[in-house]
Amino acid sequence: MNGKIEVEHLSKTFKKGDVQAVKDVSFTVEDGEFFAFLGPNGAGKSTTVQILTTLINATGGKATVAGHDVIREPEKVRRYIGVALQETGVDPDLTGRELIELQANIFGFSKTEAKKRAEELLKIVQLTDSAERRIGNYSGGMRRRLDLALTLVNEPKILFLDEPTTGLDPSNRMAIWKELRRLNEENGTTIFLTTQYLEEADSLAHRISIINDGEIVATGTPRELKAQIGNDLIALTFSSKEEEEKAERILKEHMDPSDVILQNGKLTVYVEDGTKQLLELVRLLDQENIEVATVNLSSPTLDDIFLKITSEQAEKEGEVHGE
């Protein structure tokens, strides 16, 4: 048994609403790798997690988790994985300790083993002090941490975490990040994490796949992806449409045209070094008598990456169809 995830041409169409949530997705996560699935709302992240964790069936393709086919051998897959779904699944009437012990008992631990495991896990997620309280009274952050503890009960070879830090405050987020890093580095646990936060994927994952509208649009190490995107982003607005278009034309002449995107009255420019290039840009436009209304320098967000990647795709398709 290994901690590998292999996905080939996976698809899922929901009959209800005829939604194609996952479209021909393929990727491999190596044993011991920390892999992030980065994508916006509705991208298909949770659907993929649910297929890989045996909760729902794919409508096409094939997936192997820990060496077992998720469709043909779901019982075997369930033994080796730990799963924290996007919505935490806890019984609010039990205490934290009772729930962890129950989970351990279900995985075949004896009573004493289960008690011991609960004690260890409560300590790891820093819930020892609240262990005797009912989960219904836990805060969102505490529930998330308990959820993480529950996923670790069976010492899984592979962890699936669907947006484990969404909605958490920075200190809870840091606590979870720290624990995930430890699990991956010390225990060699393979981790499949989904997130909407670029910085989260960036700081945790060895490799990232960006998923948008059910399709993987880019895959690489954080460094590779960023190099593709540019480190900084300059957003410019102008007081007239003519100036906008003129500025776009001029900037496209002076740099890689795919780094210049005009959308909704905003001209976005991806650059290597924002502070240096900002001045050059403004000077260049000034020489052409174009008046800049506002300027904004920032780091790219997930939205910006999508904008860039999807516009590149559109351009490529345009070339293909145009010639």
Binding site: L55, E75, R78, R79, V83, L85, E87, G89, V90, I106
Partner: peptide, 10 residues
């Protein structure tokens, strides 16, 4: 969601 959590166990 506890039902789903149970379904995810063996």
């Amino acid at each position: 969601g506890f039902f789903s959590r149970l379904l995810l166990t063996p």
